[in-house]
Design a protein around this nucleic acid. Structure first.
Length: 613
DNA sequence: AAAAGAAGGACCC
DNA sequence: GCCCAGGGTCCTTCTGAA
């Protein structure tokens, strides 16, 4: 079967393929039912979940029949399969509810709403930005670790468990990925690409977005497809790797296009409203990045297979889905996407997780935690991060995933500290469910203290001006410390700076106060037994009375102050007056936002210093 | 009362 | 001989309060 569709010329082919897929799917289903004598819907859907996704590239010429059967037979009865079934049941239930609602909605006329939504869509279409030429380059199919094209012919996909892959393809040799090589290669590629757009954005190891609009302007002899051709050619020369590419007026469409001519070809969607509409109308929703298995099936069950059908049904989508999803789907249905490439990525979390053979023994679990905390601390150090939220992730032997998160008031990065917090969570998990055995454990650090990003003095000055209270260059003023969340009164900025430095230095250790502050956590995780418990867990951590007092107050303060814009200057107000644990100055909190700004400022104390002199 | 934090999911590569 | 990863992001729902 040929899934190599050419969207530029033949749109009908898409529909044909869709039907063929469906037929084939039913075919497999029947065969399995024959063998297994099972006809329940759940199995049916689980199969859908486990089956190959025919939308993805590189799967033409695969005997999907056979592949699906093998996957099914090897998987059935496993804990994984049972879990998939369970999840599927829940999903199916959800869909049933939606359908009911959908039918109800269809009975109503909704003329007014329809009009409204149509107007909105028209407006969006009119404002469609067609001025940009975005290119998406995808190398993944030529270099990715587990499933290359040869293997794919056998139906092997990445993330497939080895034993299944081996059944599919007896001669399969699992080659360990060579990350170094990847790195070198991707550097080469990026070098090439940056000459066409210095602001390109690496979307992943093997994917890149770039905007060639500027290049085209400067080189009028080129056409978009010619530029892309050249890029791919250069990449090939340098790395001997093929790449597929998509050219379109926005990121979303470019990505879809790059998927259409794999592994070594390109597809262009012209910057023309009619072309885009035509393209989108017949586009299967599953092709869109962001619509995965679940959403695809949900929409399918509502009779929506293409973006065109999606567009027709937006009124119902609006009622059936949550606002963010609705907004997303609305854009999708119109083929509207981002036209600006944002290459500024900042990480929000960092994590390590490991799968292992089932463990129920407490001690072994703690050992795993130790290992993982080491690995995480290493990574954290490499990235030079400090965070104050630690999340423990566990997967039971039955493939159920649970995550528990604990946020403390200090930013941590050291292995011992990560371990301490992780252990606290693990303790409570074990207590909750003593004999549970697990097959995976993970730790994540988040809520970072960002020391470099986004801190400019301008911002600070502006904020202060807006508030019309403090001038940065004036003296005897109040500043909010970004670390301790408090307002400091100082005569000179360097005092303030000193304060911040102190705060930053003290960020290191987790003290008892950290845990005490987190009352909710204490309750939930049964940590009321303070002294004895803490002494064991946090060894060598002396309790600084002032500090713990203050943090306690701070926690209280924050809760008290949620909404009010109160009293920045009322020194006598007991509820708002705090002593900074670091510099011992009186401080006055109002909103968290302000406190955050304060943080930025403190972190930037170098700049402040320069400014001052 | 609103904002935030926690837990759970869906998705992507 | 093992026996469906691991690293991220974003969205949604629930909770809750000294």
């Amino acid at each position: 079967m040929n899934y190599d569709m050419n969207y530029d010329n033949n749109y009908d082919e898409i529909n044909e393929c869709e039907n063929e897929e469906k037929d084939e799917y039913n075919n497999v289903k029947e065969k399995i039912n024959e063998n297994e004598n099972k006809t329940d819907k759940v199995t049916d859907n689980v199969l859908y979940r486990l089956s190959l996704n025919p939308n993805k590239g590189g799967l033409q010429n695969v005997d999907k029949d056979k592949v699906n059967k093998i996957i099914y037979e090897v998987s059935k009865g496993s804990a994984f399969f049972k879990n998939a079934k369970e999840r599927e049941k829940i999903h199916t239930e959800r869909i049933k509810e939606m359908k009911k609602k959908y039918i109800e909605l269809k009975k109503r006329t909704l003329d007014y709403e329809k009009q409204k939504i149509e107007n909105l869509m028209k407006k969006m279409e009119n404002e469609r930005d067609l001025s940009q030429y975005i290119v998406h380059i995808d190398m993944s199919k030529s270099m990715i670790s587990t499933a290359n094209y040869e293997e794919r012919k056998y139906g092997v996909r990445s993330a497939m468990p080895g034993y299944i892959a081996l059944k599919l393809c007896k001669d399969l040799i699992l080659v360990p990925p060579r990350h170094k090589k990847y790195h070198e290669v991707s550097l080469e590629i990026r070098k090439v690409i940056s000459s066409y757009d210095p602001n390109y954005c690496p979307a992943s190891v093997d994917e890149v977005f770039l905007n060639i609009t500027n290049f085209l302007e400067k080189n009028p002899l080129y056409t978009p497809s010619k530029v892309t051709e050249e890029i791919r050619q250069k990449i090939f020369e340098k790395t001997k790797l093929t790449a597929s590419a998509g050219i379109a007026p926005n990121l979303m469409l470019a990505k879809i296009c790059s998927d259409m001519n794999k592994p070594n070809g390109q597809t262009e969607l012209k910057n023309d409203a009619n072309e885009v509409e035509k393209f989108v109308k017949l586009l299967p929703i599953g092709k869109v990045s962001g619509i995965g298995k679940v959403t695809e099936r949900t929409l399918n069950e509502l009779g929506i297979k293409t973006c065109g059908e999606l567009k027709e049904n937006m009124i119902y989508i609006r009622e059936l889905f949550k606002p963010a999803t609705y907004q997303f789907l609305l854009n999708v249905s119109l083929g509207i996407g981002k036209t600006i490439i944002n290459n500024k990525w900042e990480r929000k979390s960092i994590s390590v997780e490991r799968t292992f053979s089932n463990i129920s023994d407490e001690q072994e679990l703690y050992n795993k935690l130790l290992d993982i905390s080491f690995k995480l601390a290493q990574d954290v150090e490499k990235e030079n991060l400090k965070g104050k939220s630690v999340t423990l992730k566990l997967k039971t032997s039955g493939f159920e995933i649970l995550t528990r998160c604990l946020t403390i008031s200090k930013f941590i990065h050291k292995q011992e500290d990560i371990y301490k917090v992780g252990k606290k969570i693990l303790d409570s998990c074990i207590e909750e469910n003593p004999n549970q055995s697990y097959r995976l454990m993970g730790l994540r650090l988040s809520s970072f203290l960002d020391s470099k990003k986004n801190i400019s003095l301008d911002k600070f000055v502006k904020i202060i001006d807006n508030k019309n209270t403090v001038d940065i260059l004036a003296q005897k003023k109040e500043y909010e410390c970004p670390v301790c969340y408090k307002v400091i009164r100082v005569d000179y900025l360097n005092e303030f700076e000193k304060h911040v430095n102190n705060c930053l230095n003290n960020v290191e250790d987790i003290k008892q106060s950290e845990f005490i502050e987190n009352k909710k956590y204490n309750k939930k995780f049964k940590l009321n037994d303070k002294e004895s418990d803490y002494k064991q867990i946090i060894k060598n951590d002396k309790i600084d009375n002032t500090t713990s007092e203050d943090y306690y107050h701070k926690g209280k303060q924050r809760l008290n102050n949620k909404s009010n814009n109160q009293i920045k200057h009322d020194v006598s107000s007991t509820s708002s007056k705090l002593i900074c644990p670091i510099c011992k100055s009186s401080i006055f909190c109002s909103t968290n936002e302000e406190l955050n700004r304060h943080i930025d400022i403190c972190l930037n104390n170098d700049i402040i210093k320069n400014y001052e002199t």
